[in-house]
Design a protein around this nucleic acid. Structure first.
Lengths: 224, 224
DNA sequence: CGCTGGTTTAACCATATGGTTAAACTGACG
DNA sequence: CGTCAGTTTAACCATATGGTTAAACCAGCG
């Protein structure tokens, strides 16, 4: 990962850039580039983003981006994997906690996810968008984010159904329903706002209301 | 929209392409280009797509694409608008039909949408993806697809709630819930398959099962 | 104080890409 | 059969873009 320098002949005059971080310092530039890549990629997606934009956003030369991350694609992969790993494992952890009842899980996931996506508006849309245009990457990269703990869920759902507490439902549909209800408004936010005539500044209030709406809706939906 | 030709001097030798449709025929080329653009854009998204790819897919020269549609962006706008207008109006029509009960609407929308998206796997993902990376376009272009008939829905939901048939729920959440449950597996399909460990070839069966699962779940979710 | 290794930079390169142009082809019509 | 309008095409062009390179810079170390 280290391309050494060399020496040869004349060149030209150079001044340090606007806000020179100087050299030989800490690895701050690398972090700044990564953070900038996160912001830009999430906002615009991979293919619309130019490496130059990332460099600009990081206050750094374009070559430095390649120096640290090789190719744009490699950087994009890293960002995508990190983004997916940022919210899915939390969901999986809650769903996989054998100590929690179905109801507790639903309430916990709803609260946690609505808070999270409310604070990171572009994340879900970015991840889904990327997954759609580059489905090949998903398979490999998603390993970092793991998969849903269907085993635990299946047992729990079967037991609850046997006890007559809920309707019979497969773990797959349970997850699909939960995730769909949670992320749809965020993933499709620009469309959704137009469709239901929701002003952008009223969106947070909508999400807030959803924290009450969703547990009620979902838990009722499970009833026999 | 018509750029006339002219005449001047020598040029070079030309043979007709692989499958020459000849000139002076019908407006078949334009249609072929548009259809090709639909396929390619839906599969890859706007920014990943090269005009050359569309030309190839249409069996036509790249210049012809510009001849008929001006810019790539214009063509992309046309395709996006058409794609959104392909499934949203149907949903709005069902939801806005004052003759149908809430329950009938839910059953009808679920059946219709699952059939539709099952037959057009990339459409929802494409529309959502584009809306995410180009939110500016949504506002203007969505006019062709219209907006949800919230007025009718609100009255109906309020009446049903007053009659004690359902829980109180706003039309916005009603639409969000319905759309989220319906389109999520399609929009996030590559992710979803990995998350729940669903083989691609078992997806159609999952959708089929969903036709029974969703009305039950949704209608139960509305109950007081 | 000069060397050294990690860091940062400007300049460069090959190619891809969106878009333009002017010619050539085609069938219909008079 | 010549012309005309609508099509279709190869060749071009300017620019953007991802990536490379070799030099310069900087701090710490011996």
């Amino acid at each position: 990962m280290v391309k050494p320098a060399s020496s040869r002949a004349p060149a030209a005059v150079r001044r340090r850039p606007v806000a020179a971080t100087a050299a030989g310092t800490d690895g701050a530039s690398r972090d700044r580039i990564l953070a900038a890549a996160h912001r830009v990629f999430r906002r615009q997606g991979t293919s619309k983003t130019r490496t130059q934009e990332i460099a600009d956003e990081a206050g750094v030369n374009k070559a430095l981006v390649h120096y640290y991350f090789g190719t744009k694609e490699a950087l994009a992969d890293a960002v995508f994997a990190a983004a997916a790993a940022e919210f899915l494992p939390t969901v999986f952890a809650i769903l996989g906690d054998a100590e929690l009842s179905i109801e507790d899980k639903v309430r916990a996931v709803v609260r946690e996810q609505l808070d999270f996506h409310g604070a990171h508006p572009y994340l879900a849309g970015y991840v889904v968008s990327e997954a759609h245009t580059q489905p090949e990457r998903v398979q490999t990269i998603m390993r970092r984010a793991g998969t849903a703990p269907l085993g635990v869920l299946r047992r729990q759902l079967a037991a609850a159904a046997a006890a007559g507490e809920i309707r019979r439902i497969s773990a797959e549909h349970f997850v699909a329903n939960l995730m769909g209800l949670l992320v749809f408004p965020f993933v499709a936010r620009p469309l959704f706002e137009v469709i239901v005539g929701l002003d952008a500044d009223r969106f947070p209030a909508f999400v807030e209301a959803r924290k009450r709406e969703l547990p009620a809706f979902f838990l009722a939906g499970l009833r026999p």
